[in-house]
Amino acid sequence: MNYQRSKNLPAIRSSRCLPGGQSLMAPFAALLLLGVSSPAFAAGTVAGTNIENTATASYDGPSGEVQIDSNTVTIVVDELLDVTVTSADPGDVATEPGAEDQVLKFTVTNTGNGTEKYTLTPDVARGGDDFDPTLVSVVIDTNGNGVYDPGVDEIYAAGTNDPELAPDETVTVFVISDIPAAPGDGDRAEVNLSAEAETGTGVPGTSFNGQGDGGGDAVVGTTGADDDDSGFFLIQDASVALAKSASIVDPFGGDSAVPGSVITYTLVATVTGSGTLTGLAVSDPVPADTSYNAESITLEGASLTDSDADADAGSFDGSAIAVELGDIPGGQTRTVTFQVTID
């Protein structure tokens, strides 16, 4: 028992207390060798919290049980300055040359234990990527819905509306950029966002006297009180080539272009690149001296009606056929045919 061991210690306040100190080292050293680990903490106890410790004891005296309290030791929990920045897009964000107001999404989390303001710094001119976007603005997700709402979410101005985060609180930040016209299909651009605790940053353990929440010090945590992460734009460009061919069948089974011959026009739209062309449509006027053969439009071999009022993609307006192809990803083709008769 502890009691037995301590009986052998030199008396407290004796000038011989040094040997006692030596003998105490053994259990401490042994415990350290066992590798008592420090658990990991997210934010931990809130800065300014008092840790108070009081022990109580009871014993049997001649006149019954006696209760005593120890003194109370009070320690203040200092503010730990920490922050984590994370790119919140699932991967590269697809964009195209010349696109405006393109959005990359980040989260900034206060991993410290006090309420802290953070300065945000975007960097669009990173090295090692293929092109640099043009920074438009940094926007705070003011309404907290995780989606960039132009005109609703507040534009960030350093020193004016630096986000103030409670321990463990996260704010979403959007970096808005314009894409220049130059980059080609497959080019990538890196955009970085950094956040720094306003109380201060530095080597972990750096202390700012009296600047912590609750009157204690502010101490730089393991993140250095600053962090950054990058998101990426990926150019996904696409282009379309349209090829037109014609075949003729004359009334006699030959292929002469005579009155009454039927011409079948074939339009092949070929989309190339890694992107998708959206809302693609083809139209073709009926040539002079020919008459359109009603209900002759096909798309990928399937007939379409001439009416523009129905749901199908084809129409004829009296002078030209049109087919709405919709969104076509790179690497695909669409084939449209229609027929006319030579007058």
Binding site: I12, A57, V66, I68, D69, S70, V73
Partner: peptide, 18 residues
């Protein structure tokens, strides 16, 4: 640490410090 003086608050016959 060992030489630190007791800061006993206890009444009675036993002192307890933290």
């Amino acid at each position: 640490l060992l030489c630190a003086p007791y800061t006993a608050i206890a009444a009675e016959r036993v002192e307890l410090s933290s």
